[in-house]
Design a protein around this nucleic acid. Structure first.
Lengths: 228, 228
DNA sequence: CGTGCTTTTGAATAGTATCAAGGCCGGTGG
DNA sequence: CCACCGGCCTTGATACTATTCAAAAGCACG
């Protein structure tokens, strides 16, 4: 698995100079992570950043009362652990949703590489800026939406992150509890909202799987909040 | 007002090489902005970034239904408009809370400067990473907290941003409506919560001014949510 | 010293969380 | 193969929380 030949289009490493690309390729390590396993824990010392070569993860943050919150869903090509960059400890944890493969680059290599490749720093800066904008739009939406609307948001977010299969069902459906952990509610409320959406003809249900005949109609339900 | 002699400690410009510092100093412009005035609007084309030389701002985002949300409060030394960097239009607007003075750097100068000064890009990247972490912690807290708890959060946030005067009252008190716009509720609920907090002895009230005898006691009220 | 705005308060209503019970489903072991 | 178990999902009842509406009081400013 070397970086020069990696087909991963989104990986920021490709902005390196050829010399640094070779160096990073040599220094990085390659990890596998089976389903439902922690890639790194909240509170663990920051050792570097992870790039998803193949797989899906949820990024979680736990409150002192034990409630877990899903901060973000991530798939192939995305970076994990960058939130900790510059910190001592990871503010969040990452859990694989399926069997996954991940590249790891240690902190020293990252910092050196950033300092010698303005284009990479610049690209990462824009990546963070974009993430920040999305995070703040979500924060606004969550401050203003009712629970049912936030659940619609979570369905759209999941559908757009993991995609739909040929029958228009969300790939890798999350559990009701996981939806609740995105929104900050409980499984009962998710269940009730799904039933309501099904009755309105906005979604279909097959076991825990959620089908979306027309995602634009679903988006129209929460159009009043500028959330993207 | 030249950058070489500017006393503003937090300004990221100081990470430039001396040559670029001189160049930016020449190219930047200096603006004044009176109280309750828009520095830039939501949806306006992105022309550059702003640095608060002196003053206080609220950063707002409006939903299609007209509800306004306060994304962030900013004071002297902080950067504004950076959320739009790389975009076509500002996703948010900035309104001055007091008479203010601001430096403005156009987009082209910024981009050139970033590409020639890896240290600045790097510093900005870390700034964004930090903002992102804070934004996500706030998003989690808001997903899990009840309204009253979010109001406590807003009080602490305002107190820490603008500081307390010698009588332990928040400098530049926001209106009830502005607190509501941080939290995503209404003025009535803010008023009720303040009364409740006063009765518990956690705050004091004098007109619209909020006094905080011991901010640590206030923080203890929401300690179960890892929000900082 | 009005006028218009914000703030406070109460009452009615709507929305949400919590508790409890039963159903469904997949996996395990007899 | 089937009974059983444990987890997740669904549903209803109830208690709690928050929003909305309305009205009065307070305050700032011309």
């Amino acid at each position: 698995m070397n970086c020069q030949k990696c087909l991963n289009q989104n990986c920021f490493i490709k902005y390196c100079s050829p010399k640094w690309l070779a160096l990073i390729s040599e220094r990085k390590s390659f990890l596998t992570c089976s389903k439902n396993q922690y890639l790194f824990y909240e509170g663990q010392p920051v050792t570097g950043a992870y790039l998803i070569f193949k797989g899906e993860f949820k990024i979680v943050s736990t409150s002192r009362n034990g409630r877990q919150h899903i901060v973000r869903l991530a798939k192939q090509g995305q970076i994990l652990g960058h939130r900790g960059y510059g910190d001592e400890f990871y503010p969040i944890g990452a859990i694989s949703l399926v069997n996954s493969q991940v590249c790891f680059i240690d902190n020293n290599s990252l910092t050196e590489m950033f300092m010698h490749n303005a284009a990479v720093s610049y690209h990462m800066m824009r990546f963070y800026a974009d993430e920040l904008r999305k995070s703040e739009l979500r924060a606004k939406a969550f401050a203003q939406m009712k629970t049912a609307e936030k659940i619609i948001y979570a369905i759209i977010y999941t559908a757009e992150t993991f995609g739909l299969n040929e029958e228009k069902f969300i790939q890798h459906p999350l559990s009701r509890i996981e939806f609740a952990e995105i929104v900050g509610t409980n499984a009962e409320q998710v269940s009730r909202t799904l039933r309501m959406l099904k009755q309105k003809g906005l979604i279909s249900l097959k076991g825990r799987k959620i089908g979306i005949p027309d995602i634009e109609v679903l988006k129209a339900e929460i159009k009043d909040y500028h959330w993207h």
